[in-house]
Structures are given as C-alpha cells and as structure tokens.
Simulated scan of single mutants.
Amino acid sequence: MTRPAIRIELCREAYEAITSATAEHLPVETGGLLLGYREDANVLVTHALVIDGEGASTHRYVRDDIRANVLLAAFLAQRADDDPTGYVGEWHSHPAPSGPSQTDVAAMHATARASDGPIALLVYAPGGADPFFGLIVRRQRFGRLSSKKATVLPPPSRFEALGPLPEGAPDG
C-alpha cells in the first residue's frame, strides 16, 4: 500500500505574499515565516510573513530573528484564542530555479528538533516549470529527523480557463 504524497497547501493570501515579495526583491533572495496549521503530515499555509534579511544577496537569505519574533508575536496577538493558526515553517526565494541548499535543509533540521510537529520549508524560484519546492521535516522517535519532499499546492486560479478561439478569429 502506498501512502499519498505529503503536501503543503497554500491559501491565496500566503501565495500572494510570497510571490509579490519575491518579485519586489529580485534578483536578491527574500523570505519569512509560514503560518497556518497541520493536518496529519500535511501543512496548510494560511499566511506568509515577509521578514527582510540583512545582507541578503542573489544566493543567500538569512532572516532577522528579532524582527521575525516581533512580527510573529504581533500576528498571533490578533488571533482568537481558539484559532489553530500558528508557526508551521519557513519560506524563502531563489532567483534561479533550484531547490533548497544543504544550508537550508540543515536549518530546518535544527528547527524541527525543537518542534512538536512537522515543519515546512518552501522555496519559491520563479521562472522554472514548477516554481515551488516543498520539504517537510519532522522529529521521529528517539530524536531522529525525517525529511520528505512535499507536493506544493498553490491556490486555484481566480479565472476560468480560456476556451478555444471562435471560428474565424485571428490566430497569433
């Protein structure tokens, strides 16, 4: 029996925050925090906070931890007590199509060691056939960690697919 692929689902607000921040910062990397909730091994991302990284370059992003903690606390303070939304991971951009680096994976492993649930890493690299790369890291028994590639599901398009051109319409 095969298990279904684990996934990271992006809600529209999170998707738009990630794609617009990336477009604003290109060719420099940018990133931030993923907020949402977990459903079994999957992660649903409802919001993405953008945290500027001092010294960001075309091949490096290091977020400002102090600013991240301030923005996270402010976001969570606005939520209702029974709202399950919380920290579920990290995201950052790559200006060229590529997945996470060894440094990215090592950082997620360090974060997962202190977490009680799966932690998502989302890398957004516009320009490729599949611009999102997802990874979910979780702590297993005896402190071991597992990393699994996750399918990233962007929100559905707000527009209907265009049908065929009408008969006699000019062809591009």
Rank of each mutant, 00 (worst) to 15 (best):
T2L: 15
A5T: 08
I6T: 10
E9L: 12
L10G: 04
R12C: 00
E13H: 05
Y15K: 00
T19W: 00
S20L: 09
T22G: 06
A23C: 11
H25Y: 12
L26Y: 05
L26R: 15
V28A: 08
E29F: 04
T30N: 14
G32H: 05
L33Q: 02
L34N: 06
Y37S: 08
R38A: 06
N42F: 00
N42R: 04
V43S: 05
V43D: 04
V45K: 12
T46H: 03
V50M: 06
I51Y: 04
E54R: 15
S57N: 07
S57A: 12
S57C: 04
T58R: 12
T58F: 03
Y61G: 03
Y61H: 08
V62C: 10
R63T: 02
R63S: 06
D64I: 04
D64F: 07
I66F: 11
R67Q: 14
A68V: 02
A68T: 09
V70M: 13
A73T: 11
A73Y: 02
R79I: 08
A80Y: 02
D81H: 08
E90R: 13
W91K: 01
S93R: 05
A96V: 14
S98L: 05
G99D: 06
S101F: 01
S101Q: 02
Q102A: 14
V105R: 15
A106G: 10
A107H: 09
A107K: 07
A107I: 00
A107W: 01
H109K: 08
H109P: 00
H109M: 06
A112S: 03
S115R: 03
D116H: 08
P118Y: 01
I119G: 00
I119C: 07
A120P: 02
A120M: 01
Y124M: 07
A125C: 11
A125Q: 04
G127C: 12
G128I: 03
G128W: 02
F132T: 00
F132Y: 11
F133N: 11
Q140V: 04
Q140E: 15
Q140D: 11
G143F: 13
G143H: 10
R144T: 11
R144P: 01
R144I: 06
L145Q: 06
L145E: 08
S146R: 13
S147Y: 05
S147M: 09
S147T: 14
K148W: 02
A150P: 09
A150T: 11
T151L: 13
V152I: 03
L153M: 10
S157L: 07
R158K: 11
F159M: 12
F159G: 01
F159I: 08
P164T: 10
E167G: 05
G168V: 04
A169Q: 04
D171K: 14
D171T: 15
